[in-house]
Each structure stands twice: as structure tokens, then as C-alpha cells.
């Protein structure tokens, strides 16, 4: 066996471009040679500015788009092979940006059933999966409501349940939190973390919010169609200058220590959370007392 059992998605030298609509069209989001391996069970964040190509990249991961050059292999299936398309989409579900534009059903539970219905799952089994999926995302009590009565965060949770009912191995969120209020973002992120940690589902989350990137196992920074940096959140954000130069935010705590270091202090550069910050400050104080 090859390493299929640990690799979820493997992108090799991937190039992609959209055909320009007019000759002088701008904003043709393109992918310029991406290599990326997504491991099974990991929580990966693709971080980048709007128009950086991160959204295009994740559409290449479930065969909505096909690479113009290079290959994308999902769970052992090459996306270029038409026969694999439906196998890939069953394994890799996708939640999109606009909560309103991806709900097909007129009632929550009917929407959740849409995916398994397309897969030809027997009715009794669909019922079971729908109930379970809605329970997992905490939306059971809304099963019979019309989707337009829900909040943005709730709609996205329904969309996630719709993916779960297809029993995927991986969920991709294509800027799925960008239209939500802070409360809705938290709701969705909590569900994602739980799916990732408890059910072992691979999560690829596309965002420009650094708070969300901090929750990831690994962050890949996308700029101008390339992955320019990969690493743990702490590694990524320790480069305060670089991230800010790209037009992104870093956690305030990280920035505080970065600025102190510029003034001659020697704090570690990879502090992301209040807890970490408190720890190093306590250490400093201890040193100070000993010094006195």
C-alpha cells in the first residue's frame, strides 16, 4: 500500500487560471504552482486576503475545478479522471460562503437529506443519518423549520449537517464564516472543532480571520496563487512583519510581544494566547525577583 491511509489530499505542482471574460479583465484568480499535502484528521486553515486564490484552491480539492497543470489526488482518486468525480465529492464535502445560496430544501431536514438522496441511500438509512447529523451540529429542534427563519450561523450548521449526512472524510469550508456575525462564527467553529477532534473528520477552513487560524493544527498562507508559508499557527504568526505586510492580522498578544522585542526585550515570538502570555510574564517576574 502507498500512503493513502494518511493522506487526504495531495496537490502536486497545481496550476489553474480562469479564462478572462474580456481582454482587459482583472481579478482572474489563479493558482500558480501549489504543492500541498493534507493529512487525514488534521485541521488545516488556508489563510489569505480576498482574491489571493484560496477559494479557487479549495474548489480544486473536490473536483469542482480541475487543474490545468499538475494533479490533485483526493483519498487516492485523481480529480482529472471523470469517473472519480462523484467518489471524491462524497468523501470531500464543501460548505460555501453565502448561507442562503446553498440550502436546497424548503425544510431543514429535507435539505440535510439532499446529499444522501443523490447518493441513492435507502430511505430508512437517510432518515437515520439526517437525525444523527442534525444532532451532531445541535440543530435537531429546528428540523422542521423553513431555512429562511434561521440565523446565518444556524444556516451554516444546517449546511454542515447536509455534508455530514453523506458521511464524508473531509469537510472544506470555503469562506463559510465570512458573512456571519461573531456569534455565528463561534457557533460554526465550535461545531468544526468538535467534528475534527471527536469524529476525526479532516477540516480545511478557508478564512482571512486570524482568530480562526489560531485554532488550526496547521496554517497555510496563500498569496497570489501560491502557498508562501506553512506551519503551526504559532510559527506563522511569529512573523508579525510578514503577515501584516500581506494585509492580514496577527493576534494582539503576539503583536504586543513583537513590539516589546523591538524595544530590546527578549520574549519568545510564538505567543498566541492570553494563557501563554501570562506564563511568560510570570516567568519574567520570577527572574526579576531572583535578580533583585
Amino acid at each position: 500500500m502507498n500512503n493513502n491511509n494518511i493522506t487526504m489530499i495531495q496537490a502536486k505542482d497545481v496550476y489553474f487560471y480562469y479564462k478572462a471574460l474580456t481582454e482587459d479583465s482583472e481579478n482572474v484568480e489563479a493558482i500558480n504552482g501549489v504543492n500541498l499535502q493534507v493529512k487525514k484528521g488534521e485541521f488545516l486553515v488556508l489563510l489569505g486576503r480576498n482574491g489571493s486564490g484560496k477559494s479557487t484552491l479549495c474548489r480544486l480539492f473536490n473536483a469542482l475545478l480541475k487543474p490545468k497543470m499538475g494533479t490533485v489526488v483526493v483519498n487516492g482518486f485523481d480529480t482529472l479522471n471523470e469517473d472519480n468525480t462523484w467518489l471524491i465529492r462524497k468523501d470531500v464535502g464543501m460548505v460555501f460562503q453565502n448561507p442562503d445560496n446553498q440550502i436546497v430544501g424548503n425544510v431543514v431536514e429535507e435539505d440535510v437529506a439532499f446529499g444522501p438522496e443523490n447518493l441513492g441511500v435507502p430511505p430508512a438509512e437517510i432518515r437515520k443519518r439526517v437525525d444523527q447529523s442534525l444532532k451532531t451540529v445541535g440543530m435537531s429542534e429546528y428540523a422542521e423549520l423553513a431555512p429562511h427563519r434561521l440565523s446565518g450561523g444556524q444556516k451554516q450548521k444546517v449546511a454542515i449537517a447536509g455534508i455530514l449526512a453523506m458521511e464524508p472524510e473531509c469537510i472544506i469550508l470555503d469562506e463559510a464564516t465570512s458573512m456571519l456575525d461573531p456569534w455565528g462564527r463561534k457557533e460554526v467553529l465550535d461545531v468544526l472543532l468538535e467534528l475534527n477532534k471527536k469524529e476525526g473528520i479532516t477540516v480545511i477552513h478557508v478564512t482571512h480571520h486570524m482568530e480562526e487560524a489560531c485554532l488550526a493544527d496547521r496554517v497555510a498562507v496563500v498569496d497570489d496563487g501560491r502557498i508562501i508559508k506553512e506551519g503551526s499557527p504559532a510559527e506563522i504568526f511569529s512573523d508579525v512583519e510578514g503577515i501584516k505586510g500581506m494585509g492580514l492580522d496577527v493576534p494582539q498578544v503576539t503583536e504586543v510581544f513583537y513590539k516589546l522585542n523591538q524595544k530590546g526585550y527578549r520574549f519568545p515570538t510564538d505567543i498566541l494566547t492570553v494563557e501563554d502570555a501570562l506564563k511568560v510574564i510570570k516567568e519574567q517576574l520570577a527572574v526579576k525577583r531572583i535578580g533583585n
Partner: peptide, 27 residues
């Protein structure tokens, strides 16, 4: 039109490919 486009993409990514071999939760 934007919504239609988004919805078509979302349906496609949820394995929709017409009525053939489709089952229904509620018979």
C-alpha cells in the same frame, strides 16, 4: 443569477446529477 450560480455549484458538490438513481427520505 449569482444565487443561481452558487446554488448550482453547491448542488453539484453535494453529488446532484439529476433524477436517476436518486432515492427519497420521505417516500
Amino acid at each position: 443569477f449569482r444565487r443561481a450560480d452558487d446554488l448550482a455549484t453547491a448542488m453539484e458538490s453535494r453529488c446532484y446529477r439529476g433524477g436517476e438513481n436518486r432515492t427519497r427520505m420521505k417516500q
